[in-house]
């Protein structure tokens, strides 16, 4: 890196020149950071195509990315929680619970199923109220809640089985011309959340609550209400994630989505989200989820021993974060 302290007094460059060069560079870094999630996705995608050229087709992509839809929805759910500076360690078992309800009540007695799913969302909002009013750490409450979700799921469906409603299966096996359905669906989800969270005025309030809760409270916005709304939204997307998952698997199991907790956190972080300050990005989160879904297929194509598959995902996470740290350090040095 050039030392700007010296170049400010450069005999041949005016001060203004240096200034504009610095702005250009700053812009560069900002764009670079925003593009990092996309860049990681492209690298994994290209690597996958290289390892297995047959995947470079409508059918291949469809097959590889189909599970990206439920993962993306769970990631968005986690993103809502991270927006208000909390962390949800229960989203995986929650998605599993929704799957169990979907494959039993929703199929047999749809009305009861819908009521049960509405209760699930209400439970998330109640969790937010408890966390806020008693000022409890979200990781412990959600960790405790994960046992509750798992327990209810085991009671509903003691052994793997059930049957997903036909309309769910129909939606998830939708064929869209030219671009595979998972990609269309993921982009639509991201666009919808982007409009709601990043451009609407209520979205600004929600993100502001993550950035400075006290300031938002002074400005007259109830932190309790915002948190409950965010948790309810997380519950809603958790429900959508569970339903889309059983639309693909056609049956359910209490443990079907246990790994989603980690996927969802990793997806948000890969997508450029930060733990504090309400800094999140819906498009980034969805791209992060796609990257994780692809990374699984890529590792299989690379014939990496199953022993190292989970480790390789950890390594991918570390590499992306290391790159971001590198960009950030440059930014801080200005």
């Amino acid at each position: 890196m050039t030392n700007y302290g010296e170049s400010r007094n450069h005999p041949f460059l005016s001060y203004r020149d240096c200034e504009s060069r610095m702005t250009a560079l700053a812009l560069n870094r900002k764009t670079l950071r925003a593009l990092l999630p996309l860049l990681s996705l492209v690298i994994v995608l290209v690597a996958t195509f290289y390892a297995q050229p047959r995947t470079m087709s409508y059918f291949g992509l469809n097959l590889m990315l189909q599970y990206a839809v439920p993962i993306a929805l769970a990631t968005i759910a986690q993103m809502f929680i991270i927006t208000v500076n909390d962390l949800d360690l229960s989203i995986g078992p929650f998605v599993g619970l929704v799957g169990c309800i979907g494959a039993t009540y929703l199929n047999d007695t749809p009305l009861l199923g819908i009521v049960a799913l509405a209760l699930c969302i209400a439970a998330y909002a109640a969790m937010a109220a408890l966390i806020h009013l008693r000022n409890l750490p979200s990781i412990v409450v959600t960790l405790g809640a994960s046992f509750v979700w798992l327990g209810i799921a085991v009671l509903i469906l003691p052994s793997p089985g059930g049957k997903a409603p036909d309309w769910l299966k129909a939606i998830m096996s939708l064929q869209v011309p030219v671009v595979p359905f998972p990609i269309v669906a993921a982009l639509a989800i991201a666009a919808l959340v982007h409009v709601g969270l990043m451009t609407s005025s209520y979205g600004v309030i929600m993100r502001g609550t993550g950035g400075n809760p006290r300031a938002m409270a002074r400005a007259g916005w109830s932190e309790l209400r915002t948190k409950m709304a965010m948790y309810a939204l997380a519950g809603l997307f958790g429900v959508l994630s569970g339903l889309s998952l059983i639309g693909l698997t056609t049956s359910a199991d209490a443990h079907i989505a246990d790994r989603y907790t980690l996927y969802a956190i990793a997806g948000v972080i890969l997508g450029g989200g930060e733990f504090v300050g309400g800094r999140v990005s819906p498009f980034g989160a969805v791209i992060g989820a796609l990257t994780l879904a692809l990374a699984g297929s890529f590792l299989i194509f690379m014939r990496i021993s199953p022993d190292w598959q989970i480790g390789a995902q950890g390594a991918i996470l570390i590499i992306v974060l290391a790159l971001r740290a590198l960009i950030n350090t440059g930014e801080a040095r200005r």
Partner: peptide, 28 residues
């Protein structure tokens, strides 16, 4: 208790205990 009930009770009681213990008042 069955496996399901055991899981639910574990979760509920853990949440109950930290709720009663009162979280972190100093932080407030």
């Amino acid at each position: 208790a069955s496996a399901g009930i055991r899981l639910i009770m574990t979760g509920v009681i853990i949440i109950a205990v930290i709720t009663i213990a009162g979280g972190d008042r100093a932080q407030r």
